[in-house]
Write a protein that binds this DNA or RNA. Structure first.
Lengths: 353, 353
DNA sequence: GTTGTCTTTTACATCGATGTAAAGACTGCG
DNA sequence: CGCAGTCTTTACATCGATGTAAAAGACAAC
């Protein structure tokens, strides 16, 4: 069965222009000089036939497809959307297109994705790891270039990150400075191998460090996991805390989406924001600024971040022998209405008053 | 220059297993019977060499790459994120991967994308058109299968849609029933060819139809365009209306993101929601439910929507001769707090009281 | 033991673009 | 006018997987 690909090929163009296929290729790639009149004839023929080169063939021949992969835990999350946008634009500017993958949907997906990356026609990959295990990084040599975004404590791949630990600590300092004393940490999905080394772990450590340096306790009942890093997940996590009747006066959510869900849940339990509870998020997604109570958050430039990741990726695509590089991006705590303290405190047990 | 592709190929596997390349291929594709011991030997060799087939080569040979394109206007918009998630999952379930493209960034991008779709190694494409011109649909024969999502008044491609016009009319009825009389329409980017046939146009017509059937006027100063279909765009559009001092008591935003931006701006001008102004959106993104004032919106199942689009696409990939099909998905108006009327009315000129 | 049928494996050509090397066209200079 | 030296163009092989057709092997029955 021959595929019905009735598309014009370079041979058709060559025939029509009265030249050899290689000349057409030369016109396209600019590899060799082509005399003006010949070039014009070829271009004319390409236009007439509405010719477009077959990237599968080119990819096969060159060993590169011009496609990069972007793997994010959950595409619904606001941060993912923002990052996808930034990466697609940055890639477009470099003549690359982006294939997206989602890793959180199933447990083994992240692992599968990385180990089978070669299958997917991609020249490289940008990965936001959640549970990346060392075992994956092991056969890195057999894999296309990978750039990790977000924190991962390993030094064998390129990565772009903000110092999440310091950021979380700064956020805690900020909350404490505004008068909070009992701060809930809201993030994480489930524990498991690799998780402590990823973003989640860093933010948790920063939270603990912030409390420690103020010589405050870090009670376990205030450290809560959420089922997924979405608004609904944040609401669910907050609900559990409230149901347990924990006493607290601030929430440090590990993403803005989680924070927004938490704020919703708090409001529906009658808490006033920020009068009763301060809330701080992470990522500064568009939504944070426009929330009912604008959200204080750790902000960093998503566009710069994406560009840094793509610079690393493209340079490694050119030269695989480069040493692993780590690029730290600056962040900034943006204080908004959600942390205008001091808070009165709140708990699921005791009604406000 | 030979590419450094040091990866094992089927020939290596064949050599190691002591069979011919074709036998390896047979094991992989299941095209022909392979005796048990031979198959096991081949599989063993594949495992030992960590072999993964080269999709460029397979794509070249078969004329199919297993990749579909998803083109959306603005990936930052909440609806885009939700749809991307749904499409990626639906595609994954069908063994396909998704390449994303963004069309709103530059004026010619949508056109380029469609006409050059063939370049991009994709077997088909799901497109949410904003300014799709008929000229594009013209050379449809030369293009890979395309499924349009959202309203487009043409009958030559497959499409999935909700009846946006009826939905907008229902929304207007709802607002009127809750006591609104002067409803702002908030949507659209800029006028231009093709726009009137797309989603934007349908929603505008439904809005007008809703007012007409209630025999209410539709003053031009209440019909406003926003610079982009994002939260910031919605806020900006709302600001313009408020600055003009228009009198109104409800807002029909063409997407939830726009609505959320509008609500933010209204609030910052001192309007109470919904006491002064009712707001209704479109799409029922996760955020709508969790907004400070939960947003009334036109809801439809994004997952079903994505699955319908993929069913159309894959069936057409199998048989290009099928007649164009249109699948209408059901929608539902979800009344939430943002339209608990009747509203007192608001304008940028006169302060509330 | 041979023939015939059925199954498994092989050799080869092909998908479309492009690098290599060699042939051909053209320039300028003696 | 001829020849070295450059610039263009050509023929051919190649990237890796797979369909086709034919060869090789397995097995049963006569």
């Amino acid at each position: 069965m021959t595929p019905p690909s009735s598309r014009p090929t370079m041979r058709d163009v060559a025939l029509r222009a009265g030249v050899s296929p290689k000349t057409v290729s030369n016109v396209l790639t600019g590899t060799a000089q082509v005399r003006e009149p010949t070039r014009l004839r070829v271009e004319q023929a390409m236009r007439e036939l509405d010719f477009v080169p077959n990237l599968s063939a080119r990819g096969l021949r060159n060993g590169r497809s011009g496609v990069i992969g972007l793997a994010l835990p959950d595409l619904r999350a606001a941060f993912s959307a923002s990052m996808t946008h930034a990466v697609v634009e940055a890639a477009h500017a470099r003549g690359l297109v982006v294939q997206v993958e989602e890793t959180a949907a199933e447990p083994g997906r992240e692992h599968d994705l990385v180990t089978r990356a070669r299958t997917h026609l991609i020249d490289g990959m940008i990965l936001n790891p959640v549970r990346l295990q060392d075992s994956v990084v092991e056969h890195l040599d057999h894999l296309p270039p990978i750039v990790l975004i977000g924190e991962v404590e390993q030094h064998r791949t390129d990565r772009v990150f903000i110092d999440s630990r310091a950021a979380a600590r700064d956020a805690v300092r900020h909350l404490l400075a505004r008068g909070a004393r009992r701060i809930v940490s809201l993030g994480g999905a489930e524990s498991g191998p690799g998780l402590d080394k990823a973003t989640q772990g860093q933010r948790l450590r920063g939270y603990l460090a912030g409390l420690a340096e103020a010589e405050l306790p870090a009670p376990a009942e205030l450290q809560t996991e959420v089922p997924e890093w979405t608004i609904a997940g944040g609401a669910e996590g907050m609900r559990q805390i409230l149901q347990q009747g924990a006493q607290f006066d601030a929430v440090l959510a590990f993403t803005d989406s989680i924070a927004l869900g938490a704020m919703h849940e708090l409001r529906s339990w009658g808490a006033r924001l920020p009068e009763d509870v301060l809330v701080c998020g992470f990522d500064d997604v568009e939504h944070a600024r426009f929330a009912g109570t604008p959200l204080t958050t750790i902000a960093f430039d998503h566009e710069d971040y994406a560009n840094a990741a793509l610079d690393l990726l493209t340079s490694r695509m050119r030269d695989r022998a480069l040493p692993p590089r780590a690029v730290e991006m600056p962040y900034e705590l943006l204080a908004r209405a959600s942390t205008t303290g001091p808070p009165a405190g709140f708990s699921g047990r005791i009604s406000e008053n």
